[in-house]
Nucleic acid binder design. Structure first.
Lengths: 210, 210
DNA sequence: CGTACTTTTGAATCGCATCAAATCTGGTGG
DNA sequence: CCACCAGATTTGATGCGATTCAAAAGTACG
């Protein structure tokens, strides 16, 4: 399940996930690889933060459970870092799981900090990454403040898609959760929008009209 | 309205707003001060990003307007940076306004970047700040995904308060907007919670029971 | 004292959540 | 290949809670 950093094939990793290319040489030496099964727990809320995680393949999620057992997705990463905001705190504030069969790279937090200090280009990339995460989250808050399923769908296509077209990378059910809706409400809203000619659905491709 | 950086009284600024203490010497020379009226626009969506803003007193907000003229608050800052995530992009993705009479410091983006490169402690503080913003926003998304006004209120007190007690720094009306509710729904939920003994309200002090 | 805004309550409506169930889908093992 | 299963997708009926529209009372400020 875990392999030493020395034997990792970095060119192949970068091909799979461009973000791996940002990792500077000195940090590569300290990298471990993990292959996780669907549903496997990566870390739990309260665990001390020892590593930074980079998703190379598959999907990792940050989740939190409410008292009723309901599950809220706080972050969903298909390629790229996950739980980046935990780098500066002692313990995780949510659970991390692999949503499907996934490959991840682990960087020791201490070495990661050292690399940030010593590699300006890596630091800039990390800055940009954090800032982009902030913008994405703000857009999501804006979306969740909209009333009405159709408005949230339209906002999602606008924000996450290109030229009014978005390709879903998840099931509609989990998309519904991301939109703060039940899956039934999402299905019905999609149908209404198609009937009203304001949306064209082709598998996982959604195109907004007007 | 605007004063040169040379004549700024930094100890006084730091007393008003601790975050000002993070600003390294070399960046202080390039700082400008702005005093903004309630409702005054600081920057508009699409404007090129030339400065980083630090709120010393009063309140600044990032807002976006939907087609119906509705206003969504993306960020609310009473002391501390605002629009931090724009440092790495060319243009603002939302409007910035002063919500009340406010004092702000402006740092030229280029000098700010240089300071980040050259001052490790400043860089660490900035990192921590961005990461903290990410965690706050994730908590807000989690909150907005809750159904039911009472649940959002309880979550807010849990996340933003200490030991089940929070002091509001805004009107209930704008708090309602932050919670993704109409103000009527918020007022009614607050009353129901008081009637049910799950909440004690004392002016702007809200204490959650159980 | 008047104006603008927030706070508060009321009544009617609408949309989403909820519960239920049928169908479809992909994947597993016989 | 087919039977089977778990999960996603889809549709239906019902009730609740939030929105909406309306209006009164309270509050801050010039």
């Amino acid at each position: 399940m875990r392999r030493a950093g020395a034997e990792l094939d970095w060119p192949a990793l970068v091909a799979l996930q461009p973000a791996a290319g940002l990792i500077p040489e000195r940090l590569r030496k300290h990298t471990r690889r993990i292959d996780a099964h669907p549903g496997e727990t990566l870390f739990r809320i309260g665990d001390p933060v020892r590593c930074v995680y980079l998703v190379i393949a598959g999907e990792a999620r940050l989740i939190r459970r409410d008292r009723k057992g309901g599950e809220v997705i706080l972050q969903r990463s298909r390629g790229g870092f996950i739980a980046e905001a935990s780098l500066d705190v002692r313990a995780y504030h949510c659970d991390g799981i692999a949503a499907e069969q996934s490959m991840l790279l682990l960087f020791p937090a201490g070495e990661f900090h050292r690399a940030l200090d010593e590699e300006p280009s890596f630091r800039k990339a990390w800055h940009a990454h954090l800032a982009s995460e902030v913008r994405t989250l703000r857009a999501q808050c804006e979306r969740l403040c909209l009333h009405g399923a159709a408005e949230r769908i339209a906002h999602y296509i606008e924000a996450e898609g290109t030229d009014g077209v978005v390709t879903l990378t998840q099931s509609r059910k989990s998309w519904a959760a991301e939109l703060g809706l039940t899956h039934e409400a999402l299905y019905r809203a999609l149908r209404r929008m198609q009937d009203a000619q304001t949306l064209v659905v082709d598998g996982n491709r959604l195109a907004s009209r007007r």
